[in-house]
Design a protein around this nucleic acid. Structure first.
Lengths: 185, 185
DNA sequence: TCAGGTTGACTGAAAATTCAGTCAGAGTTA
DNA sequence: TAACTCTGACTGAATTTTCAGTCAACCTGA
């Protein structure tokens, strides 16, 4: 059984994925975790403290999805790795929405940025490595392109401006085209 | 002197760019516009009405700098059109942040989606037309790719994960590579 | 004088935060 | 080992704060 604090953070991520950062209500979080509101304040200083801890937690969780079995074709590996972010399972959707919220919150909250930036950089580095392995020139820029695209497509998916299938197609095409175009420069 | 309603909408965009859609407080909007809160309700039905009107206003403003003089090279035209979204001027920054907020809010708020979709669709269509003109096959998908990328890069810019210059480079490369790659399919 | 604009003061509801305790278990000591 | 006390985890019920939204009265120009 996870420590209570961890349970609360997990519940917080669930609530954030459902109502957003601004929509997080302490009472709802308490209900989600099956505890009293007062307990929340026993474990966290205040609502802002919950949010901060929860966003850190999201940031940490985000790193997990990145791993894909290495095989010969590094482009195919890259494609699969990125497509993992565009799946309609509870886990991925929850995480992806929460990540979008983290990104959006960082626009207004200075003190979230550093952690976010670190995670983003790590993700970029992973993608860059695969691109370089595939012989793409300017792999760093192409990596930034692809990861930013995943974020953009995810947000559109969650806001209903694009279907999941179409987002996946767009991403697939992007991987193809990015590597092909950049390799021939 | 602009009409009061317009002043209020401009103030709303400023506040949204500073605190986000979900952080918009009627009282703060009133202060920003230098009027009483009661006046807000004279001009708008309720908070949702303000938001809705502000969205329309943002959409209109966006169209102003979406248009670029047509010249022979449709790809160059496309590049310039998209780069207009990545500029560090008050107008563009405000608008871009507000747009990101609307996108993020629409994840949780059903009733913002329709207008958002319409604008997104129109934008996609513009980009698609230029791509088709440049001989790109599957222009629709490529358009979705590029516009989603602009949104992703913008959000990263505003959250400080990428510099404006780098975002512009990534976008330029993307336009180049997308057209080249897709045209040769 | 009257209609469109405007305001200060207010309300009610929703949320955050605090408070005064309960309870179970872990030491401690005689 | 029985009686004790101490503490961390936890709760129900206030209390306080924050907001959207209302209203009656006041301006001001036509």
């Amino acid at each position: 059984m996870a420590k209570r604090r961890t349970q609360l953070l997990q519940a917080a991520v669930r609530v954030i994925a459902q109502d957003g950062v601004r929509g997080l209500r302490v009472e709802k979080l308490a209900a989600e975790a099956g505890v009293s509101t007062a307990l929340i304040y026993y474990h966290f200083k205040d609502r802002a403290g919950i949010l901060h801890a929860a966003l850190d937690h999201i940031n940490q969780r985000a790193e997990r999805y990145t791993s894909v079995p290495a095989d010969g074709d590094s482009l195919e590996q890259l494609r699969q790795m990125l497509l993992l972010e565009l799946q309609d399972t509870d886990d991925v959707r929850e995480n992806s929405i929460a990540w979008g919220e983290l990104r959006a919150s960082a626009v207004f909250t200075e003190d979230l940025r550093e952690a976010l930036h670190a995670t983003t950089r790590a993700w970029n580095a992973d993608v860059e490595a695969l691109l370089r392995q595939a012989g793409v020139t300017d792999a760093a820029l192409a990596a930034e392109h692809l990861t930013a695209l995943v974020e953009g497509l995810s947000e559109r998916w969650h806001s209903g401006s694009i279907t999941l299938e179409r987002a996946r197609e767009a991403l697939t095409l992007a991987v193809l085209v990015t590597s092909r175009g950049a390799a021939s420069s």
